[in-house]
């Protein structure tokens, strides 16, 4: 028998790791069903449909029963607007960064060019440096460029170039590219170039070879790279915080704003939904990885 199996240390540390990782998430989800108005105190689960008495005084008509806070969330226009922004940003930045990142990975894998090793190293930089540095950097870049352009073209008033959805999208594309490239590169490591030669040998030109042979072969890698980019974009707070503008509030930014005012279990309901979505995406990614290998 494996001697490490018996060690109580292993068991205890395993349990502790799980507690510290998942207890907060579990508590967060439990509080989404709170019958209290604040998410600091747990007033018990909402157990029935119909009128609700909260914090001893207010009585609320709730048709949703235990899912009261989820219904409130759905009615909240600000939340819906932020959700729409978040998803718009995530979809556009995921598609763009997946395409660009995959092209970069292919180029790095098959061609030798000047400054190739520098290009490779430069991929790690956005991953390694603190996000806040990136955020400030992008902010400075955008404001300088916008000030310059507004000045040169004499743009004034509401037409002035400024921060908004577009700046968030551009910066999300930028920070996602290295992640996609590295994931696709890993997939390309074991790529047998002779299958491309075989396709050409059988009469397929370069384009047909790419779409019929290369692309399907590396698709699992592209998909898991894309999913990674998608979750990164959904979750991002720091860079978004620096590059967002009026009307471009995303969910993380919105929740942060809420925390500074009143915190209602709506925030928990929102987080619970979020956790479920991200968790599903990660599961899907895992499945793709398994299929790939």
């Amino acid at each position: 028998m494996n001697p490490y199996r018996r060690s109580p240390f292993i068991r205890i540390s395993t349990v502790l790791v799980y507690i510290f990782l998942y207890a907060p998430i579990l508590v967060l989800i439990i509080f989404a069903f709170n019958s209290s108005r604040t998410n600091v105190l747990f007033g018990g689960f909402i157990t029935h449909f119909g009128p609700l008495s909260m914090n001893g005084s207010t009585v609320i008509q709730s048709p949703c029963g235990p899912f009261h806070w989820f219904c409130e969330l759905a009615k909240n226009r600000e939340v819906m607007g932020a959700t729409k922004n978040t998803l718009t940003i995530a979809f556009i930045s995921t598609i763009s960064s997946t395409i660009i990142g995959t092209m970069a990975a292919l180029a790095l894998q098959r061609y030798n060019f000047k400054l190739k090793s520098l290009t490779q190293v430069s991929l790690y930089i956005p991953i390694v440096i603190p996000e806040i540095v990136m955020g400030i950097g992008i902010l400075v870049l955008f404001s300088q460029v916008f000030t310059f352009l507004n000045g040169v073209f004499g743009i004034t008033g509401d037409d002035r170039l400024g921060m908004g959805l577009q700046t968030v999208i551009v910066s999300h594309i930028a920070f996602s590219i290295p992640f996609v490239t590295l994931v696709v590169q890993a997939r390309l490591q074991g790529f047998d170039k002779s299958i491309e030669e075989a396709a050409m040998d059988l009469g397929a030109n370069e384009l047909v070879t790419f779409w019929r042979v290369t692309f399907p072969t590396i698709l699992p890698g592209i998909l898991s790279g894309g999913l990674l980019a998608f979750t990164l974009s959904l979750d991002d707070f720091v860079i978004t915080f620096f590059t967002t503008g009026p009307g471009a509030t995303t969910l993380p930014i919105y929740v942060y704003g809420l925390l500074r005012r009143i915190i209602t279990p709506q925030v928990n309901a929102l987080s619970a939904v979020w956790v479920m979505i991200v968790f599903s995406i990660m599961l899907l990614m895992q499945k793709l990885e398994n299929r790939a290998s």
């Binding site: 047998d192 002779s194 299958i195 030669e197 075989a198 040998d201 072969t217």
Partner: peptide, 14 residues
Amino acid sequence: PVNTVFQSYALFQH
């Protein structure tokens, strides 16, 4: 007008 049998077979796995 030639075709090749590859050492690694180079079959399309998908």
